[in-house]
Computed example of a mutant assay.
Amino acid sequence: MSKIIDPEVKARAVRLVTEHSPEYPSLTAAVTAVAKQLGVGKESLRRWVIQAQVDTGERGGVTTNEQSEIKRLKAENRRLREDVAILRAATTFFAGELETRNR
């Protein structure tokens, strides 16, 4: 179960890793130190830092805005597919009704 982390805490943690990463031999070492200092999970912090790098263009990948747009479009696509399925079922039903009346 994931717990909700305050966005300000996330931003502060990412900023600390970004600012202090030159002091450490690797990004992992910087993330581990900051995570321990702030009491957050090191894997969570590592993912936040990577996503921040993607959002700023330092790293390739899907930005946060693009992810939210993809999620919205997938939900819309799912609703439209459900609507089409309902309309197909209704069309089949009414076509069957018309066919029996004509006989």
Results as ranks from 00 to 15, higher is better:
Gly41His: 04
Val54Trp: 02
Leu98Val: 01
Arg12Ala: 13
Arg88Leu: 11
Ala89Ile: 02
Glu97Ile: 08
Phe94Trp: 04
Thr63Ile: 05
Lys42Cys: 07
Asp55His: 14
Arg46Cys: 11
Val84His: 03
Asn102Cys: 00
Asp55Ser: 14
Gln37Asn: 12
His20Asp: 14
Arg46Ser: 15
Glu97Ala: 08
Lys36Met: 07
Gly41Phe: 02
Lys3His: 07
Ala89Tyr: 06
Ile70Val: 12
Gly60His: 10
Lys36Ile: 05
Gly41Met: 03
Pro22Glu: 06
Phe93Glu: 09
Leu45Cys: 13
Ala85Leu: 07
Asn65Glu: 13
Arg103Phe: 05
Ser26Cys: 09
Ala33Ser: 15
Thr92Pro: 00
Arg78Gln: 09
Ala52Ser: 15
Glu82His: 09
Pro22His: 04
Arg12Glu: 14
Arg103Met: 04
Glu19Gly: 05
Gly41Val: 04
Leu80Gln: 04
Gln67Glu: 08
Thr32Trp: 06
Ser44Tyr: 13
Ala90Met: 07
Gln67Asp: 03
Glu69Cys: 03
Ala75Gln: 12
Asp83Ile: 03
Lys3Trp: 03
Gln51His: 11
Arg12Cys: 10
Ile5Arg: 01
Glu58Asn: 12
Asn65Asp: 10
Glu43Pro: 00
Gln37Pro: 08
Ser21Cys: 13
Asp6Tyr: 00
Glu82Gly: 05
Asn77Gly: 01
Gly39Cys: 13
Arg15Gly: 06
Arg103Ile: 05
Thr18Cys: 07
Arg78Pro: 00
Leu87Trp: 04
Glu66Pro: 00
Glu23Asp: 15
Ala13Thr: 12
Arg88Gln: 12
Glu58Pro: 02
Arg72Gly: 04
Val14Tyr: 08
Ala11Val: 01
Glu99Val: 00
Ala85Gln: 10
Arg79Gln: 06
Phe94Gly: 00
Lys36Ala: 15
Glu58Trp: 07
Pro22Gln: 05
Val54Glu: 04
Glu82Leu: 10
Thr63Asp: 09
Ile70Ser: 04
Arg47His: 15
Val49Phe: 14
Thr56Asn: 15
Thr92Ser: 04
Val54Asn: 06
Ala29Arg: 13
Val14Asp: 10
Leu98Met: 02
Gly96Arg: 03
Thr64Val: 02
Ala13Arg: 07
Lys42Thr: 13
Val34His: 12
Leu80Phe: 02
Ala35Lys: 11
Ile4Asp: 02
Gly57Trp: 13
Arg59Gln: 14
Lys3Phe: 05
Ser68Phe: 04
Lys10Gly: 00
Gly39Arg: 10
Ser21Arg: 15
Pro25Leu: 10
Gly96Cys: 00
Glu82Met: 08
Val17Lys: 12
Lys10Met: 01
Ile70Gly: 03
Val17Pro: 10
Asp83Thr: 06
Glu97Lys: 09
Gly61Phe: 08
Thr64Ile: 03
Asn102Phe: 00
Glu19Gln: 11
Gln53Lys: 15
Arg88Thr: 12
Thr56Glu: 15
Arg72Ile: 01
Leu45Ser: 13
Glu69Tyr: 07
Arg15Thr: 11
Val84Gly: 05
Arg15Trp: 09
Trp48Gln: 09
Val54Lys: 07
Ser2Phe: 01
Lys42Ile: 04
Gly41Asp: 11
Lys74Glu: 06
Asp83Ser: 08
His20Ala: 14
Lys71Ser: 14
Pro7Met: 02
Thr56Lys: 12
Arg81Pro: 01
Glu69Trp: 07
Val17Gly: 13
Val62Asp: 02
Leu87Val: 07
Leu38Pro: 13
Val49Met: 11
Asp55Phe: 14
Glu99Met: 01
Ala30Cys: 10
Pro25Val: 11
Asp55Glu: 14
Val9Gly: 00
Gly96His: 01
